[in-house]
Design a protein around this nucleic acid. Sequence first.
DNA 1: TTTACATATAAGCATATAACTATTTATTTA
DNA 2: TAAATAAATAGTTATATGCTTATATGTAAA
Lengths: 114, 114
Amino acid sequence: METSMMEIEKTATILKLLGDKTRLTMLKMLDTHDYCVCEFVEIFKVSQPAISQHVRKLKDVGLVKETRRGQWIIYSLNRESDSFHFVQSLIQHLPNQDFKLQELEEQGLRISCN
Amino acid sequence: METSMMEIEKTATILKLLGDKTRLTMLKMLDTHDYCVCEFVEIFKVSQPAISQHVRKLKDVGLVKETRRGQWIIYSLNRESDSFHFVQSLIQHLPNQDFKLQELEEQGLRISCN
DNA sequence: TTTACATATAAGCATATAACTATTTATTTA
DNA sequence: TAAATAAATAGTTATATGCTTATATGTAAA
């Protein structure tokens, strides 16, 4: 049967957040790997502040969490979030995005954060 | 297992559409009953043009379809839509909204369309 | 065939969103 | 401690959204 119920209002808030190609892709990517802001900047080809604002929105609703590692801040899925299972059942339908990480490595742009 | 893959871009478009309390509730309602515009107007307490615009957006992406019945236009889920299973797996998480229909009947406002 | 009713469309307005540049904050390293 | 790097925040701008009122269209009924 069903996992757990979501409030309509909260769900709408989350769906609006995920209704953005960049954030939706981020979440799918975070399902298999953690990423730092600088990697997202390379991958999405937008400015660093733009990326910061996207991850902040995801953080504000509790979907992702951050860990500082030196000068880098690593973002990861918050698997303790109330909405985690909902979001995961949703991104299940999306194609794996690991190729983006591979492209990054081929360009030698991943090393910077590790 | 998994049903079928959704493109990221198309999925973002759909999620943005569903990231609105009114449209999300509409879809959940349409999962169990068909509704005409005038019923939605009563239920959502917004103007008739506002409702028309919401259902139009849902229709434009193929999630709902309309059937004229006399002077009324009845909206229903388009279960042939590419995105139908995706949307259905999503609204599964939402609480049933049939109480809205009952409220409408108690107010005697449902008779108008039938 | 005029009138009433249901819905759609158009136009206008207020607010939200997503991007950018410039600047600030935090951390590391020289 | 000064310079360099990563990320966050502030401020601006362009565009999108959702609502409203006014009007048009389509159907039914007098």
